[in-house]
Design a protein around this nucleic acid. Structure first.
Lengths: 195, 195, 195, 195
DNA sequence: TATGAATGAGCGTTCATTCAT
DNA sequence: AATGAATGAACGCTCATTCAT
């Protein structure tokens, strides 16, 4: 890669990162190209050398910052370790990831209903997360640690609840370790339950 | 009230309802006053006879359509009836209510982060729901139907999960009766569990 | 005059007075009918029962508050009294009148160039003043108190200078008694004066 | 400076000049951006590339066309030449300057009371003129050409009167050479003058 | 690659005015 | 006489986008 191409690539990334913050803060619609150009320190026109238009920039932001990969790593718990150890970790890390990616999450939530492409990404992310967590739970069910039940339900309950608790800014708080314990009580095999 | 004033009141309501749909569909920001006026069949200028500006219209929409009252009725289950009967009903009805109020829910989620007044309304709604459901669960815990645990956790888990499942348009679906059964397994007293 | 007609007349006057202040403060153009109606405590529509439109209101204000009559009284000095007594009084009273009528003066100055009808009124006022003051000076010239000269010049100098000093808000001030003394005496040294 | 930048600069100046005329003709408030853009032959939006808003355009007009410098040159009469030669020239040139700058004068008079920044400029102009003319007169007083008096009074009388005679459109006219002669000489009969 | 001048449509909002009540 | 609902044009201004340089 030439020096020039490298610089261009950096500039592109910089634009995407700037856009991420602005889109999250004010929404895609309310973020203007002048805003963006000023925040990124470039001329307005230059935007259109890197992206066809404002919508493409939105998609680029989402693709660039989508965290499906991180989410998969995070949720790919070693199937040998017990759920009572793994789930609290997974839940906490998931909450942390959402916090780090709060900007993108906001964009997803607001823009998904208006833009089908965004909705596709959102769907892939959530279903990807559900799928991999479900697999893990299924294994733990097979080992007998967890009682027989529909593991996708557990996965959705865990992910949805934590997602919601991060999404909305409410005065009440969800204490995640307690929440996981609570979930576990429901799904552990009777012989695993110690109280 | 004169005929004139009555007609005016109806017009006002009609404007609010029109705005509800458009705001939900395209977002508050992307809904223009010309859009709105055309959809409502009035002149643009008339909007400002009824509302000081576009933001006040948003707040009027939220106040007019806020469903805290309905939510409270819905969640005010008779404390004498057992949770294993009541919770499935409550969950289903909550999901139905969210579906009916989908437009408002979308507005809440998108606009709450940009508009503190909207955030206040959203918070009141959610915490109101959590509170009342928590009370019911506490009673059922006192009767011994539910095992001792933190009832607010159950309330949040139930409401958040259903909320999320209505909020996002994903390919995977959450089957609500199964979800409630799953939750119940975790919180019923051992002697109540029949499987 | 019936009671009703009296009330209507009062209302009309009240509207004119309200308009006078608002027009002077913000200009005719920048004063809106809603502004005016609110300030006068009436409904917008009522304005149009009393005045055909906004421009007619402007003309009504000017006609109602034009002070040509007062000006004439003020400047109609007894021709028997000497100018060295009369002119200081006249100047001071003229300045006072302008101060009282500051609102109307502002309207004249700003609107005269855009509205020929207003210009007509302004012209009548100024030329009326000049004329009557000139007459007085002519008499005093005939008596020999004043040396032979073009009295209209004196009249204009006196009126214009005081008008300007009231019109503009400058940091420097004109002391009117000194100004009149100065006018009376001229500025050349006696030995320079050749006539 | 590149060709582009030069053209831009010219456009900016052209906009200012166009605005000067329109503002003077119709007033700042009554001059719309569409008016202006059409008169200048540009798109409306371009205005905002050159000026932050309509008020900044007004200030740019005033700064660009303010004639304090010209006024100072004009009034900086050689102190060695006698007032009876100099004052008529100064008065005539001042009147000519006001005529050339009629547009700006109109703007000053109308907008100064509503816009403090404009008022500041107006004050600077008038007081600047008064000051420099006063200095000259003081010198001529010191030489003995002019009798002892307050020279600022003469300066204000001369400038104010000429200003007013240019400002208002009245049927009567002020003959400037006669006016200056008159100022120089005073109006009392010699035998009435007591000093 | 990068600039920023230029466009024209569209924004939220205000307005003078009309008119049914 | 008095109201205030209703209109539609116009306002100041911002926008996404284009393009000559």
């Amino acid at each position: 890669m030439t020096r020039r191409a490298q610089q261009a690539e950096e500039r592109r990334e910089h634009l995407i990162d700037t856009a991420l913050h602005l889109f999250a803060e004010k929404g895609w619609n309310a973020t203007s190209i002048p805003d963006l150009a000023k925040a990124a320190g470039i001329a307005q026109g230059l935007m259109y050398h890197y992206f066809r238009n404002k919508e493409e920039l939105l998609l680029a932001v989402i693709e660039r910052h989508s965290f499906l990969a991180e989410l998969k790593v995070l949720l790919s718990a070693s199937s040998e370790r017990p759920a009572r150890q793994v789930l609290p970790e997974v839940a906490q890390n998931f909450a942390l990831l959402l916090q780090q990616k709060r900007d993108l999450v906001q964009i997803f939530i607001c823009e998904a209903q208006k833009n089908p492409e965004v909705a596709r990404h959102q769907d892939a992310l959530i279903e990807g997360g559900v799928e991999i967590l479900t697999s893990y739970l299924a294994v733990r069910m097979a080992t007998g640690e967890l009682r027989p039940h529909e593991p996708a339900l557990t996965a959705r309950t865990l992910l949805y609840t934590i997602f919601m608790s991060q999404l909305i800014h409410v005065s009440g708080q969800l204490h995640i370790p307690d929440f996981v314990q609570f979930l576990l009580q429901g799904i552990l095999s009777p012989e695993e339950q110690t109280h």
